[in-house]
């Protein structure tokens, strides 16, 4: 398998020689790979990645989000149902978010959430057989940045899942460079939703378009684009 790392793999490919580079006999498989009996089968087209020593996954181009436990996502509240909110996260099903899943919430002290609000939240339960469950607090009961966002403006838009992963990866220089051009706030959900707030709608649109444009750019190209944008924004 070592020789197939960073190469294109296709669904149905069977990966062999797994233990070649491993010290222990165990390997960890991530998204895009599936174990069937003794074989590891590829289930998504993309590039096979390896994190040394033994973590394998497939990087692929995808727009449809599949809930994953522990992912931070941005959801839209679609309904209030009993003691929970129904939240759209872009997955196949609506997720539930309990009233008590907010910081400082009790039975008597209900959080202020309206239908149509956007929420920065985290998956507590996500598996293929059950309805996904969300929560807006960490294990210490703190909100740690989660909760209702976008009440005082800002704009949310959808992009591909790759782009979000790219923005969040430490190698990507886009955020640092854009921040130098103009100040803005950003929340990124692993479900491909980005929320931005800059000083004016014009600047917000400006940043949204810059992020869209960077999807297929290399770091050098991003640098060139940002320096160009810097000049433009000074002019406006």
């Amino acid at each position: 398998m070592v020789e197939r790392v960073d190469k294109v793999v296709l669904p149905g490919d069977i990966l062999t020689d797994l233990s070649e580079s491993e010290i222990s006999s165990k390997i960890i498989i991530g998204p895009g790979l599936r174990q069937e009996a003794d074989e590891i089968i590829v289930s998504k087209p993309g590039l096979l990645r390896l994190k040394k020593p033994n973590v394998y996954w497939v990087d692929c181009q995808q727009k449809r989000y599949v809930p994953e436990r522990g992912d931070t996502v941005i959801g839209v509240v679609t309904a209030k149902a009993g003691d929970a909110f129904r939240v759209d996260v872009g997955g196949s099903e609506l997720a539930t978010l309990s009233y008590l899943g907010f910081e400082g919430a009790t039975k008597r002290n209900r959080p202020d959430v309206k239908v149509g609000d956007i929420i920065n939240t985290k998956f507590l339960v996500a598996n293929k057989d059950m309805e996904p469950e969300l929560v807006c607090i960490d294990s210490q009961g703190r909100s740690s940045g989660m909760g209702v966002i976008g009440r005082d403006g800002g704009y949310m838009f959808q992009c591909s899942l790759n782009l979000v992963r790219k923005l969040l990866s430490p190698e990507c220089v886009l955020m640092k460079l854009l921040g130098r051009t103009m100040p803005f706030e950003l929340a990124a959900g692993m479900n491909g939703r980005l929320w931005i707030k800059a000083r004016s709608p014009k600047q917000t649109i400006f940043i949204a378009n810059a992020i869209y444009a960077s999807e297929y750019m290399l770091n050098e190209q991003i640098k060139a684009m940002c320096s160009k944008l810097g000049n433009v924004s000074i002019g406006t």
Binding site: G116, D117, I149, G153, G154, F157, W195, P201
Partner: peptide, 14 residues
């Protein structure tokens, strides 16, 4: 996909 209040307000404002 539902449209959030945030998007609605932003589009109106823009």
């Amino acid at each position: 996909t539902p449209l959030s209040n945030c998007e609605r307000d932003f589009i109106r404002k823009a």
